[in-house]
Design a protein around this nucleic acid. Structure first.
Lengths: 246, 246
DNA sequence: TCGCTCCTGTGCGCTATACGAACAAAGATC
DNA sequence: GATCTTTGTTCGTATAGCGCACAGGAGCGA
C-alpha cells in the first residue's frame, strides 16, 4: 500500500462539484489529511501539470482527464456497446445509455443522446444514485439480496421528486419485482418529466455486467407504455451483445 | 514532490487504448518503474477499488472515472458551455464540441452530438492530435509562434488521410492563416468524409481559453461551404460565452 | 525431461517522505 | 489597534517505500 499515492487520489477527489478551486486548507479539511501532506500532494499535481496553482488556489487541469480516459478507451465494454447504442438510439428516437455499478452509484460508461431530456448533462463518467435510476434498479437487483440491502441502508436516499421511492422495504420489493420481470421502469423518480426503462446486460457466462436503458420524456411516452414500446428493442441489443462480452 | 503519488499516476496512464489488462511487468515496462514499485502502486489501486486484480492481470474499474469526473463537474468551462452547445447543435443539425489544448493534443471537455459522423466515438476526455483537427489549429494559432512550432516539431505527425497536412512549414502557414481569419477549416484531414470548422473561445480578458467547432459529413456539406453556413452561428455562441468565462 | 527465459513475490539496507509541532503572516472580530 | 483565528510554510525525526537482489514458478522450445 503506497499511502502517498492513496492520499494523492483522495486529494483529486476532493475537487467535487461546485468546488473547482480549493486552497490547501480546503483540501486538508475535505480529505482529513494534514495540511502539510495535502500541500505536498497538491504541489505534486501542479508540478506534473494535473493542476494549476495561482499561489492561493489550486484547480484541476484537463490533463486529469487522461486518467479516466485510460479506462474508457482501454476497457472493452464502452467500446463494444457504443455502436449498438447508436443504432438503438436512432431506431427508437430516444437517448440510451449503458452504466455499471460503483458502490451505490451507477456510472455511465457509454451513451448515445438523441435530444436532451434531463436538466443535468449525462456523459461517460457521470454518476447517479442507483436506488432511483432504472439502470441502478437493474444492477442492484442482480446483487445478492443482502448485499443490495446493505448498500441501500448505507446510502442517503433523498426524494428528488414526489414520486421518488426512498423507503428501504419499498425499494427491496421493487428490486424483487425487477429481478422477476427482467427489467426496471422508473417513472419520474429522478426528475419530473423523465421516465426510463432498463434491462441487464449479461456476459457470455450469464453474469450481469452492466445495464442498458432508454430514457424518454414522460409527456410523450407515459411510463406505462415504456415496456410495450422499447422492451423488445432493448432485449434484442442485450442478446446481441451477450456473446461479445468477456 | 510526492514521488509515490507521481509514480501512481504514471501507472494509471499506462492503461492505454488496446491495453486493458496489464500484468505487473507490463506496467513496469510501460512506465519505466521498478517492478516492485509498479506492484506496490497496482496493489494500492486494487485495494482502493480503482483496479481489479485476478492474480495475474490488473484492469481499471469504473471508479477511476471519479478522477476525471472531478474535473468535468467542478470546472466552470464544461458546465457553462454545455447548454450553448446543445442549442447550437440542434439549430444547425450537426455535432458541436468544445476542447482545450493539453500539450500537442486537444481534449474534448464538452460535446453535443447530433448523429455519428466519425468512426471513432468522441466524448469528454477524448483526445485528438492538434495539428490535424480544426479546434487544434485554432488553439495552436493562439500560442506564440515559436511555442506552436516547438510543439509541432516534437509531435509525430502521421497522415490519417491523403489530405492530412503534416509538413511543418505548411502547418505554420496554415496557423498564420487561421490567426488572421479567426477560424479554422479542416477538410477530411483526420478522417475521410469528415470536415469541420472551429473558432476560438475568448474569456472576458480576451485570452483564448478553448475552441468551439462544428463537424459535418463532407458528402452533405463541402468544406468550402462550412464558413458560409456555420461561421455566424459559431461566432454568436463565442461572443455570448465571452462575458461568462472566468 | 532438461534448460532457458520471463514472470511474480519477498526480504533487506538505505533513502526519502510523512508526520506533528512550531513559526510567521494575514485576516477577522470586536 | 489588540487579540484571536486561520492560513501557508519550515524543520527535525521516525518511518514507510524505494530499488536491488534472490527464490520459486510457469511457459516454451529443443
Amino acid at each position: 500500500m503506497v499511502s502517498g499515492f492513496a492520499r494523492g487520489l483522495q486529494v483529486i477527489e476532493a475537487f467535487e462539484e461546485d468546488r473547482p478551486r480549493l486552497a490547501i486548507a480546503d483540501v486538508a479539511k475535505a480529505t482529513g489529511l494534514d495540511r502539510a501532506t495535502a500541500r505536498r500532494c497538491l504541489l505534486t499535481l501542479a508540478e506534473l501539470g494535473y493542476a494549476d496553482y495561482d499561489g492561493k488556489f489550486f484547480a484541476l487541469t484537463p490533463k486529469i482527464l487522461r486518467l479516466g480516459h485510460a479506462y474508457l478507451s482501454a476497457t472493452p465494454l464502452p467500446r463494444l456497446v457504443q455502436p449498438f447504442l447508436d443504432g438503438l438510439s436512432e431506431k427508437v428516437g430516444q437517448s440510451s445509455s449503458v452504466s455499471v455499478l460503483d458502490g451505490a452509484e451507477i456510472v455511465y460508461v457509454a451513451r448515445a443522446s438523441q435530444r436532451r431530456v434531463m436538466s443535468i448533462n449525462l456523459m461517460p463518467g457521470s454518476r447517479l444514485p442507483a436506488y432511483c435510476a432504472s439502470m441502478g434498479r437493474v444492477l442492484l437487483a442482480a446483487l445478492p439480496v443482502e448485499e443490495a440491502r446493505s448498500l441501500l441502508e448505507q446510502t442517503p436516499r433523498t426524494a428528488f421528486t414526489p414520486q421518488t421511492k426512498t423507503e428501504l422495504p419499498e425499494l427491496m420489493t421493487e428490486l424483487a419485482k425487477v429481478r422477476e420481470q427482467g427489467h426496471a421502469v422508473i417513472d419520474q423518480e429522478l426528475e419530473m418529466g423523465l421516465c426510463s426503462i432498463a434491462v441487464p446486460l449479461l456476459d457470455s457466462r450469464g453474469r450481469v455486467m452492466a445495464a442498458l436503458n432508454i430514457g424518454a420524456p414522460a409527456a410523450r411516452v407515459p411510463a406505462a407504455d415504456l415496456a410495450d414500446r422499447y422492451l423488445d428493442a432493448l432485449k434484442d441489443v442485450a442478446s446481441s451483445l451477450q456473446p461479445l462480452l468477456r
